[in-house]
Amino acid sequence: MYNFDVVRPTSVDEALSALSQEDAQALGGGQTLIPTLKQRLAMPTTLVSLSGIDSMKGVSVDGGVITVGGATPHAVVAGEVADAFPALAHLAGNIGDPAVRNRGTIGGSLANNDPSACYPSAALATGATIVTNAREIAADDYFQGMFTTALDEGEIITSVKLPVPEKAAYIKFEQPASRFSLVGIFLAKYADGVRVAVTGASNNGVFRWAEAEAALSADFSVAAVEGLSAPSGDDMISDLHGSGDYRAHLVKALTKKAVAQAS
C-alpha cells in the first residue's frame, strides 16, 4: 500500500472540508477500498473515514419509508428492518460474511456501485432516494453504469430512503468464492406497479428489467414471467463463472423464483 493520512471527522461538514483537499477519498467500511489500496489501484493522499460521524448511522422507519444512514453497517440494517422490510434484511444479512457485514456500509456500497453488489438492486427496485450532503437523487438517475454514479467529487451519501413495498423478495445466485451475486434479482411490488432490478448480470451495472415489470404489473404471477423471453445476454458479463447467456437465463429463472417467494 502507498501511504496516506487517515482522518476521522465527527461531522458531515468536517468530512466535506477534508474531502475538498486534493486527492482526498472517502472511506466507508473499507471492505472494498482497503483491498483496492493494497493492490495499489488507488493512490489517495488522504482517506476521510466516515465511521466517526454518528449522524450518518442508524435506521428509522416512518410512514412506509425506511431511512438508513449512509454509514450504517449491513449487520445493523439486517437486524433493524427484519420486521419492517424482510427482503431488505435478507439482502443485508447475506452480503459477504459476518465480519464484513459489521464493517461494510450501505453508503459505501452505493457509492462504489460494483456491478455485482447487492445493495444497488434494492435501491433501484424500491425507487429509493439517495440523500447526499448537497441534494436528493432518485435511484433511477443515480446509477450510471459499472462503478459510475451521479455523485460529484467529494459528495457524501448521508442517508438512503427506501419506500417499503407491499411485497418484495431478493434472490441471489451466489458466486460461492466471492459471495457477490452472480446474478441477483430484487423484486418490489407497490400499489402503482412492480419494479424488478437486476444486479451481477450487466456490463453496465444494475438495471431494471422493463418487460418483466410491465408483465408483472398487469399480472403478478410466475406465469407472467414464464411468457417472456429472457433479456439478451449479448451485453452481459461473461467470465469464468458464467457466460452472458447463462446470466441472462438466470435473470428470468430468478425473477420467477422472486415472484413465487415475494412476501
Binding site: V6, R8, L27, Q31, S49, A75, P98, V100, N102, R103
Partner: peptide, 12 residues
C-alpha cells in the same frame, strides 16, 4: 462485533 483486522486501519 467481529471484524477482519487486515481490512481495517489502526486509525479507524
Amino acid at each position: 462485533k467481529s471484524a477482519k483486522a487486515c481490512t481495517m486501519f489502526a486509525a479507524e
